[in-house]
């Protein structure tokens, strides 16, 4: 019986697992990366956007397979355009086909003479390396990307995530508050800053950023988990508990494990109370 339950759990976990967090933003006002990435565009925003100029949009609409076929057919028409290989890579990225995504990002990097395109390719390749937990390589690629096109936000943002992941909070804060991010309004930027300050131990600073995030985004599991930790630090066990209960399960195994840890902790603390 126990074995069966374990197996069932594993199956459920496996089927529910995903590789990435769903971070769709419906309001463009909260998406400071909107003009560099469609990854976080919500459905309504995507629908409004015409795909005729940039067919890659269709990949984000759930039509990656068809879009890739169309890219094949339009090879001769589009191969000379700047983003052809990049966008094919992104379509594969959306499908979790990492090897193919990496291949086309690399192709874009090799074949393009355009600094902008190279920068983008480097950024995306960096992300692929992160997938494979090759942090140093990924970091180098992001650095290269930032160097090639310093005006881009996304590489800076991605680097900030890496810093957060490995505890380099000051560096993350610096990236997200200076340069192109100065004064920008963004869910993930605010969350990242709240996260950094929390892990630095500055609850006040952290709280200020959490306060700026629209409430409905606290259902996102990574935000919920971080905010729960904040509340725990603030001794608001109940609040933390509610946040965790209300969260949307991301399906990402690593985050699920973190959420489970927090829930266990909350359970103990609630008992103590």
């Amino acid at each position: 019986m126990k074995t069966t339950l374990i197996i069932l759990t594993l199956i459920i976990l496996a089927s529910c697992s995903s590789s990435r967090i769903d971070r769709k933003i419906d309001n463009v006002a909260w998406d400071s990366l909107a003009d560099e990435s469609y990854l976080r565009w919500g459905e309504s925003r995507l629908e409004k956007q015409s795909s005729s100029q940039l067919p890659v949009i269709n990949c984000y609409k759930g039509k990656a397979k068809e879009t890739l076929v169309q890219y094949k057919k339009d090879y001769e028409k589009l191969v000379g355009t700047s983003y052809y290989w990049l966008h094919i890579g992104n379509c594969y990225f959306v499908q979790d086909a990492w090897s193919k995504a990496e291949f086309y990002y690399q192709m874009s990097l090799n074949e393009s003479k355009n600094a902008t395109v190279k920068s983008i390719a480097l950024n995306n390749l960096g992300l692929i390396h992160f997938k494979h937990e090759q942090w140093e390589k990924g970091k180098e690629l992001l650095k290269e990307s930032m160097k090639t096109a310093s005006e881009f936000k996304v590489p800076r943002y991605n680097m900030s995530q890496l810093y957060l992941q490995f505890g380099h909070y000051d560096k993350a804060i610096e990236l997200l508050t200076q340069g192109p991010f100065k004064g920008s309004q963004d869910i993930d930027v605010y969350f990242s800053l709240a996260n950094a300050w929390l892990y630095k131990g500055d609850l006040e600073a952290s709280g200020k950023y959490f306060a700026q995030i629209p409430k409905d985004h606290f259902r996102r599991e990574d935000i919920a988990a971080t905010y729960a930790l904040y509340l725990i630090r603030k001794n608001d066990i109940k609040g933390a508990s509610e946040i965790m209960k209300a969260r949307e399960r991301s399906g990402v195994l690593e985050i699920t494990a973190i959420s489970q840890k927090i829930e266990k902790m909350l359970a103990v603390k609630m008992k103590e109370e």
């Binding site: 992160f130 995530q161 990574d222 991301s250």
Partner: peptide
């Protein structure tokens, strides 16, 4: 940290 460069990148 729940922040993971791949998941949040």
């Amino acid at each position: 940290n729940p922040v993971h460069s791949f998941f949040t990148g």
